[in-house]
């Protein structure tokens, strides 16, 4: 964005020589940055790369070599077999369960949270700040202490057959999402809301037609994060899903791993983890464009 402006400016610059220098300067910086980012990327990726290779090794080689001396798919075969043994339907069912407990949750959660964030940011109503503080407060209690009381509560509410205990509470919104979106709503000038109000739009219409598109980058970001968070959620499903038919992928991966120290299950565990990553990467790639694309801010203001 800013770089485009740069080029525009140089057109107005007095000497064409300057234009050449400026372009080169941008390219030079680009190259340096790409190199630096690539080095960093190697660090970020190295453990992941090791993980991929480890799924293709026999289990005796796990800690002794980096590249497999013997390439094998035994890890994947074991994963398939073990998953089928652990749960009806094996890893496919695990995928299904994960999708079921993630997709609807994320969609509804974002929907609900966006409304709440809008209200906290743009509307004035009685008790607003106190409620927000209380909501924030609930984030400050470590899960460990409410774990057992929550288990008791879910038991009383009969939610623990199947995955409902993990899904239903999340339908009511997520505080992190609200907090984050609230920040974005704040950064929209009040003049826009006013303009809409003057045009006769009600609260809901203002929200949906005008403000929501403006915070699309934020919503897309939260959608990704919420998806990833729920997809990888381990402790909640572990404790609150009572039925072994409803294991999500993280639970399956956990069940696959053997007793501490033995390397036998490591290839299959890592294989399952790898497969679990695939949807995340897909979602990430798909939503990424939404984060950048959409509406340039200044256009609305004029």
């Amino acid at each position: 964005m800013g770089d485009q402006v740069l080029q525009e400016t140089t057109v107005e610059a007095p000497a064409p020589l300057k234009k050449k220098t400026r372009i080169t300067q941008k390219t030079v910086i680009d190259i340096i940055l790409t190199v630096v980012l690539s080095l960093g990327a190697v660090i970020m990726l190295l453990p992941f790369f090791w993980m991929v290779l480890a799924t293709l090794k026999p289990h005796t080689e796990i800690y002794t070599t980096f590249f497999p001396e013997e390439w094998t798919l035994q890890g994947y075969v074991n994963m398939w077999d073990d998953c089928n043994r652990l749960m009806e339907g094996g890893i496919i069912r695990g995928f299904g369960n994960s999708i079921l407990t993630t997709v609807p949750v994320v969609a509804i959660q974002i929907f609900v949270s966006a409304f709440a964030a809008y209200a906290f940011a743009k509307l004035r109503f009685f008790g607003k700040n106190i409620v927000f503080l209380i909501m924030l407060g609930t984030m400050m209690i470590p899960f460990a202490v409410i774990m057992l009381p929550q288990a008791w509560l879910y038991g009383q509410m009969n939610l623990t057959n199947g995955p409902l205990a993990v899904m239903i509470p999340k339908f009511f919104g997520s505080i992190t999402t609200v907090f984050f979106l609230r920040q974005f709503f704040y950064s929209i000038p009040d003049s826009i809301t006013e303009a809409a109000r003057l045009d006769g739009a009600g609260y809901t219409k203002t929200f949906i037609s005008i403000l929501l598109p403006l915070v699309m980058p934020a919503i897309a970001t939260q959608a990704i994060l919420s998806f990833i968070g729920n997809w990888n959620d381990f402790l909640g499903p572990l404790l609150f899903i009572g039925d072994d038919d409803w294991l999500t992928l993280p639970l399956l991966v956990n069940r696959l791993s053997g007793s501490g120290g033995s390397t036998r299950e490591i290839p299959s565990v890592l294989a399952a983890s790898l497969l679990s990553l695939v949807p995340i990467i897909i979602v990430f790639a798909a939503f990424q464009k939404k984060i950048i694309g959409s509406i340039v801010f200044s256009a609305v203001k004029g």
């Binding site: 209200a119 409620v131 909501m135």
Partner: peptide
């Protein structure tokens, strides 16, 4: 604005009251 505001935050409030308040 009061009504709308509370309406918009009502799911969150209900969620907290039902699922978090008692355990807390």
């Amino acid at each position: 604005e009061n009504v709308i505001g509370w309406l918009y935050i009502s799911p969150m409030v209900i969620g907290i009251l039902v699922f978090t308040a008692i355990p807390l």
